[in-house]
Design a protein around this nucleic acid. Structure first.
Lengths: 318, 318
DNA sequence: CCATTCAATGTAAACGATTACATCAATCGT
DNA sequence: ACGATTGATGTAATCGTTTACATTGAATGG
């Protein structure tokens, strides 16, 4: 339509120099009239890049992850990448599907928040493709990650309870297949031992999944123990909030009868009554940094793992 | 490596007949040894299908949408499609990026939950590509949708308050660029009028966005009105929960001093104190049906719009 | 006036798959 | 025994871009 070759059109589209003003105008005019849109598949096929980032999360329902995703998305878009958000539900089959998208070059790189599944597969994937781990990680494959010091954070959280005079502190933990669960438990135990408090196994409860109902159930179970705890450290705000619900429905007061502290600082944690003391994770930054890391990796640069700061947010539940 | 032509390899990969057992084995062996993975870009370029579904949501932080997504994802995967989840933030620029993915054939179809932006663009897109609207919709382009009867649901919610003897009922609405906001307001007004109650504009508050803090702010504003309302209908649980927080922090009791009803039945709504009366939307079904509709559309079948049932969930806040 | 240079543009190969059509050898029916 | 049929395989075009290289023509300098 503009009376030029495809090469010239390509030059115009990609803003190359060496195109005369006149032809450039003609081509741009034609593009407008035809509503022409370059086919991304063909472009990617030629360039062998897709400018797509895969993001694997265990569950989209957890506000902790959605905040991370906000960080990833903003940074990715800024750098000309779009994200492909995939929920694995910790299901190996789903994970396999998404790993194949990477092998197929449908996406240039992958950010993973759930490496509990299929360790070997992950390591093998990372050998050939750009991979970054966010929050959860596995040292094994030498895959870079961004996370916080979970053990220290848990230690400080429990220490805060101890400083308030608490001596009977229970732990509501999630599945210890997750690294954070193992680390936070270690922090919990360290704080207790340091204060000369015994570690009561009847005060440690493991939930299978994350969800308010699991927190409720955990609390229900802990309230049936002979020697009642007077404080709770839950490894997730979600669990803590469920537990609070159960405590209140038994007619007990927070923090007077039972104090409770959560983890993550999801926005809902400030809406409960009383408001929940918690450990803030820099979720947005974690996402944003993950995105920068994966893009650098895609570009062939070397990237270093990083451990970000957390912060204890003291509110009314302790 | 297998000593055959690319055509034969393609036949093996796609499980075509007309390949002898012997060659098939040779090729499969080679595929295994080389860790060969077909390049999806090239395949899509040729077939012009990607088996990818675009899902556009205004915000990933709203549990209402994440539940819909669960429905979409389960159904899509079952049918061999993957989803590309995109947050628009009601930002036209982002939307344009994602619309282009469709035009470029990077995805086969699109499910939209935020048609407030760029109406003409949407209608034009739908002329050429499979589009389904979920929850929000615009009749204009004759684009199929799945949603609920928002006006009726709001009407019933307010009627519930009236039956409880409430006569001073405020409305916390969100941005009326959203269809659901306009419809729920209509239901609110209809219920009031039917009961012979006046519509007080000072009792109607519009928030710019969704988020707990906006609900708080709305309530703060409503508590400054001379003629205090004694009941609140909020068009979203998120707003209702923020409002509850504000009510309680003023030392008022729910529902004794102020009753409140929300909308959506997000999981949080059962964790508040007191628990929140709300209107349940069949979010999972909405997602699941949207996915089925878009896949049928992609396959060239005709699809009908559908209006699903809602349900009033009476809990302790009223 | 001619050789040289340079900017603008065109030509055609490449990316990696799919597939219509061509080819070939083996088998079959009469 | 020979053409027809069939199944297995190969050849080459195709999808829509990008880009190395070739070509063109005008401007420049001696």
């Amino acid at each position: 339509m503009a009376g030029v070759s495809v090469a010239t059109v390509s030059r115009v589209i990609n803003n190359r120099k060496n195109v005369s003003e006149k032809t450039r105008n003609k081509v741009e005019q034609a593009i407008r009239e035809l509503h022409f849109e370059p086919n991304v598949l063909a472009r990617n096929l030629r360039n062998s890049e897709s400018r797509l980032l895969l993001v694997l999360i265990p569950s989209i329902s957890n506000p902790f992850y959605t905040e991370i995703i906000n960080g990833i998305e903003d940074t990715a878009i800024e750098q000309g990448y779009n994200i492909l958000l995939c929920e694995t539900d910790s299901n190996p089959e789903r994970e396999a599907i998404y790993f194949n998208l990477i092998r197929n070059r449908l996406a240039d790189g992958i950010i993973i928040m759930d490496p509990t599944i299929n360790r070997e597969n992950l390591i093998e994937l990372a050998r050939m493709h750009p991979v970054v781990q966010c929050s959860e990680f596995d040292e094994a494959g030498n895959i870079s990650y961004v996370t916080i010091d979970n053990e220290l954070a848990a230690y400080q959280a429990v220490k805060h309870l101890i400083k308030l005079g608490q001596r009977k502190i229970a732990l509501i933990n999630s599945d210890e297949r997750f690294l954070y669960a193992r680390e936070r438990r270690r922090g919990y135990e360290k704080a207790l031992m340091e204060a000369g408090l015994p570690i009561e196994t009847s005060w440690i409860y493991h939930t299978g999944k994350l969800g308010f109902e699991y927190g409720q159930q955990a609390m229900r179970s802990l309230l049936n123990v002979k020697n009642l705890p007077t404080a709770i450290f839950a490894v997730s705000d979600i669990l803590a909030i469920g537990a609070m619900k159960e405590i209140l429905s038994r007619g007990l007061r927070i923090p007077d009868d039972i104090a409770i502290i959560g983890f993550d600082k999801i926005s809902f944690s400030n809406m409960t009554f009383p408001t929940l003391t918690t450990v803030a994770q820099p979720m947005y930054a974690m996402g944003s940094i993950s995105a920068k890391m994966i893009i650098n990796k895609i570009k062939g640069k070397k990237v270093e793992s990083i451990i970000l700061d957390h912060e204890l947010i003291i509110r009314n539940s302790t």
